[in-house]
Design a binder for these strands. Structure first.
Lengths: 160, 160
DNA sequence: CTCGTTGCAAATCTTTTGCATGTTT
DNA sequence: AAACATGCAAAAGATTTGCAACGAG
């Protein structure tokens, strides 16, 4: 799903709700999906203003729920006092997060077994899973052994 | 781990930090672990005041991090604007949550396969897992079939 | 007696909202 | 023209903090 498809999906959702297409909303959408990084409302405001300087904080906060409702953006809790948003669920619908307690980097990973197991458990409990969130916080093994944390990038992507 | 053991563990942690034992803190501890329900800071204040009326909101907010640090209480995000706390990780260290989107009840479950798989994945990625959080939101199958949601209790406990 | 602790109220910080004005259809 | 959207600034709501009085060791 590239950015044009995402934009189309969101505009469809917006239209279905009887709402309108505006330059501010479109700038916010473009900004949100121009990155693979997780971002905050404030960060999104900054990014959107580079595209369209008239975007206001209020419009960002009013638009974010639309992107979440449309199923294109996921609200995330990383233990901070403000919300983060993850734009990568379009590409990798079942990914989970591993947070390094040594360097604070957040890694994304997908695992088919995990996905299947989550589905099994849900059904055994009598539910059809809609949203699954797995977050693992851990210590870097290299850090424990050699005293240095080898996080290989801000956002490590890859199915293992 | 019963409440007396939990109190002891927390008092040990508090002492180790060079802090003091007070009636307000103890009331908050007793309140927090007198229930299996998830609670908010405000809810804990209410419960603690039934034990010791002099407890103030500020002290609750100052004490909560101590219980979390001591490893006896887990901070939880259930998508609301305020934090929830889960006192059940002492009894069931690896439990996860399933939230019914039809009735909003939160079920707790444990699954050994899940636990093992999470550990495997963590090690494969080069980490030793410290905290694992799994939350599944889903639709009730009975609701879908019969139009009624049969959540069998506020907090369903049990390994399946 | 010393230093941590408490309650209160004020401050903080993110997110929400009322309102007058501007835009989309 | 009608209905929705926007920016601004004020409001809201959870959590934090400064401070003077209090309490544990």
């Amino acid at each position: 799903m590239n950015i044009e498809e995402i934009r189309k999906a969101i505009h469809q959702h917006i239209e279905a709700k009887g709402l309108r297409k505006t330059i501010q909303r479109d700038a916010i959408i473009r900004a949100a999906f121009s990155t693979k990084e997780h971002f905050t409302a404030e960060g999104l405001l900054e990014m959107a203003r580079k595209i369209e300087p008239t975007v206001s904080r209020a419009t960002v906060y009013r638009t974010l729920p639309l992107l979440v409702e449309a199923g294109t953006l996921r609200e995330m809790d990383f233990g901070k006092d403000y919300k983060f948003y993850d734009p990568n669920f379009n590409e990798r619908p079942t990914h989970a997060h591993l947070i390094c307690q040594d360097c604070n980097k957040i890694f994304e990973f997908e695992d088919a077994h995990m996905d299947i197991l989550e589905n099994c458990i849900s059904h055994r409990l009598g539910f059809t899973p809609m949203t699954k969130t797995l977050r693992i916080e851990g210590r870097c093994n290299t850090m424990a052994k050699d005293g240095k944390c080898d996080g290989r990038g801000e956002l490590a992507l890859g199915t293992r």
